[in-house]
Structures are given as structure tokens and as C-alpha cells.
Design a binder for these strands. Structure first.
Lengths: 243, 243
DNA sequence: GGATCTTAATTGTATATACAAGTGGATGCG
DNA sequence: CGCATCCACTTGTATATACAATTAAGATCC
């Protein structure tokens, strides 16, 4: 193959390395112009498609940004943000090697509360499906899931058997998720939550508010509440998976 | 340009849509074989590079996986996990349009506690740098940052002036982050935290435990504690940024 | 039967070329 | 001056071709 050298490093990768080194050394500051595809062709004696690939991949990685008709530029460093993975509770329990089970407490249709209406694009007090489920880690109640489901999207939600399938699994199957909002916060458990999680009144809880979307629109809105002493959100992530 | 139609949809995008539709409809189950580049060329009357691009981008998006010499296959759905963005507190406050300031409470060297030693790869009770800082949103104390810093990596940490630069900014500058661990949990504020955040004894707090790494090793270990009534972790993310 | 070789299929890298499309500056005109 | 036009530059999409590298399966030989 046409390689730039004997070390087996593809040409486009060599160009990427060069650009990254210029940025990391400070030679090419933020928002400064990067050589055009044509300039890189000359500089590295490669075809435009190869130079383009280097620029393209760096753009996908968030290192550069490009504008048609203008040029390519160094992006702002993203080291200020990291990503935390939020997994399904059932998967998480199984990953611990424990046994997951779920107990259905309530499954009904009720008038849509204001907050939920706003989240799902419904009208206040029009019917919305509601399920209340406790997730167990072995025998310990771990998470209380209060979920509102858009009846227009999932008309047969109330007919499901949630003893062998979690709502999340069912929804994933019938309306593949495309997007989700998440809010994580610390709250004090209310009486209702204390009862179902079997915890005391002053126990802090981690509450995850999740809104899911499929292609057609908002599907569900859920409060996932876990006792602070029993559950953490954890994750390890590469901030700059650059090379 | 050579377009597949008048609607302005590029050919490679049309091929991606086709493949996605087959997967979503269940016609092409998990781990099943996807048409080869050559087969797609024939089917869509495009060049191999165009067919390849469709497969390539779907692979980058996690929809497919490919093996040289073997073929392309449908990947396992990833709808079980989402990603939450964790941003720097100063950025987050500024993004709200508020004024961020930080007050340094303590900056010293102390014997390394056991937990910190394990996190940073140090020996228990050997010296470790420690800083305690309160971050303010306008005039309200928002977050208490207790940070342990590896002296072997950042020898001049104690000499810094943290009145105009946060520890995070300083560390980012001298030891670019490559990776980070995060744990999010809900806790009750201890006396120490209550005092600095000016909150009551029974207020639930969101505690983010963050460990950062540069290329050379573990740099710092920090507890970032915020009052539950004042701070949330929020994020919106495309699970499948498909189009 | 088992090890080795060959071959076909598939993905990976690379080139040369062409035209489309967006941006911004220069030019020319009223 | 203000405005429209044109043009050079840059990125975006697409083709046709070539060769490299990897894998799996079949063929061959011992």
C-alpha cells in the first residue's frame, strides 16, 4: 500500500498527529486557521481525499470546526466537560452480580400533572399513563420508578405485563429511543418514597429525572429515585479519546 | 452535483437511512450481516467510496461493527445507556448568566488519608497537597470543593494564587487532562459542609467525587459538594445521533 | 486426518479527477 | 457611496481505479 513510511502509520494519521502537535504546543491557538485541504496536499504530498480525511476526523473528534466556503479552524478545548454514563438500573444490578427484580405497585391512567404535560407535550389533565415500580437489588429495594407515558405514542402501555419485563425494556422495544434528557439531583425522600424504599425520613436520595424521545416525539417522563446510602452513579471516561 | 434525487439528500445519507430502516424494522437483527460495500454499490448504483462512507459513519455511530476480511454487522443496540455531561462549575455558573467567584479557605500539605492514597497511587500518610475552596453563584455559596493533589505530578500547587484562577483551570493548564472518573451520590451535609455552604443540617447534597488523570498518572482527587436545593446536574444528549 | 497452500471475499488506504455549493472580497456601475 | 456582480478560495459530494491487508473456507499434499 502507499504508506508514508515503514512504521505502518497511515498517511492520514500522520497528518492528524501533525495538526494535534501544533495545537498542543500552542503554535495554533484557539480559532486560528488550519491549513486548507489543498495546502495539506502540497505539504504532505498526498491527495486531497487523504488530507481531507485527517481534517474530517479531527472535526468529528471536536478538535477542529469547519465551514464550507471559509476554512478549518481550531476548536475550543473541551477539557472542561466530561461525560457520565447513565445505565439502565437492571443492567447495573446484574453487572454487580446481583439479582434484579421489579415489583409493580401501580399501573393506571390519570389526569396529567402540569409538569408532566409540559415535558411530554400534552394538555394538563388529559389522560396520561402512569406506572409505579420498585426495583430490587437482591432483596433490597433500590430504586423507585414513577413513570408517565404518552398514550398517543404507546397506546397499549397499560396492557403490558411488567412482571417479566421492565417498562424501560418494553418502551425500548416498541419505540426505539433516539434522545433523552436527564437531570440528576439530591433530594430528601418524601413519605411515599420512604415507604417503598424502606428508608427513614431524613435519608438523602439521588433522583434522576429522565425524559425519553423516539423519532415521533416525547415518549415518557420518569422519576427514578434511589436511597443515597444504596446507590451511586459512577463512570469512567476518556475525556479526549484523541489518538 | 451528482445527487440521488432532487430533495438534496446526499447519496450516502440515503444509504444510511436504508440500513437504519432495515435495522429498526427488525429485518436485520443484531449481529446479522449487512451488505458488503460492493453489494451496496450495485444496489444503489454508487461508487464504492460512497457506499463505504455510509457503512463507515454508521460504524462510528455505533450502529454497525466491521472486521477487515470478514464483513459488516449490526451492533448491539446501545439504548440501555445514555451519557450525562459534567461541566466545570465555573462554566456552568457563567452559562446561567451569573457571576462566578471562588473563595480559598485552606491550602496546605497534609498526611494522605487512606482513601486518597488509594485513588492517587500514593502511600498512606505521605504528604499530599490539599485545597478547600467555596464556589459562589453571585453571592450564594454553591459548591464546596475539597481537592487532594498529587505532589509528584504538580509540585508547585501550593505556590499558586487561587484568587483569580480555579484549581481546575490551573491543573488543566499544567497537566492536560486525559481521563477522569466520576461518582455522583446523594449525601447528607456534614457540619463542615453546612458551615461553608450556609445550609441546614438535614439538607441533602449532591456530591461529585472526581479523579483526574493526565498522561503521566493520577493528578487529583476531589469532592465537589453542592446543596441539593441549589444545584442539579443536567444534560440533554442524543442517544443515537443518527442523522 | 492434519497441516499447509491457494483463493475468493471483504475491508482498509490512497490517488486523481470532477463538479457543487457557500463565503468573502474585489470589481464595476449607477 | 451603495449596490449588484463576479471571481477566487474553500469545503462538500461523488466517481473510477488501484493496491494492501485480513479472514475464512476450500483445495492440496503428506
Amino acid at each position: 500500500m502507499q504508506r508514508s513510511n515503514d512504521s505502518g502509520i497511515p498517511k492520514f494519521a500522520a497528518i492528524k498527529e501533525f495538526i494535534l502537535s501544533q495545537i498542543e504546543s500552542g503554535n495554533w491557538p484557539e480559532h486560528s486557521r488550519v491549513p486548507s485541504e489543498h495546502a495539506l496536499c502540497d505539504q504532505f504530498a498526498v491527495s486531497r481525499m487523504t488530507a481531507r480525511r485527517a481534517l474530517q476526523e479531527l472535526t468529528e473528534q471536536g478538535v477542529l470546526y469547519r465551514t464550507q466556503g471559509v476554512g478549518s479552524f481550531v476548536a475550543s478545548p473541551k477539557s472542561q466537560s466530561a461525560l457520565l454514563e447513565i445505565r439502565n438500573i437492571a443492567d447495573e444490578i446484574q453487572a454487580r452480580g446481583h439479582f434484579h427484580s421489579a415489583q409493580l405497585v401501580q399501573l393506571t391512567s390519570l389526569p396529567c400533572p402540569t409538569v408532566v404535560a409540559a415535558a411530554l407535550g400534552l394538555v394538563r389533565n388529559e389522560p396520561v399513563f402512569f406506572s409505579l415500580i420498585v426495583h430490587f437489588d437482591n432483596q433490597t429495594p433500590l430504586q423507585l420508578e414513577a413513570r408517565y407515558v404518552n398514550p398517543k405514542m404507546i397506546p397499549y402501555y397499560l396492557q403490558q405485563d411488567f412482571s417479566d419485563q421492565t417498562p424501560h425494556e418494553y418502551l425500548s422495544a416498541v419505540a426505539p429511543l433516539t434522545e433523552a434528557d436527564h437531570i440528576v439531583e439530591a433530594v430528601l425522600a418524601d413519605e411515599f418514597t420512604c415507604k417503598h424504599l424502606k428508608i427513614g425520613a431524613h435519608e438523602p436520595c439521588l433522583r434522576l429525572t429522565r425524559r425519553t424521545f423516539s423519532r415521533e416525539g416525547a415518549v415518557s417522563f420518569a422519576y427514578l429515585t434511589s436511597a443515597g446510602s444504596r446507590y451511586r452513579l459512577g463512570g469512567h471516561l476518556n475525556i479526549n479519546p484523541v489518538k
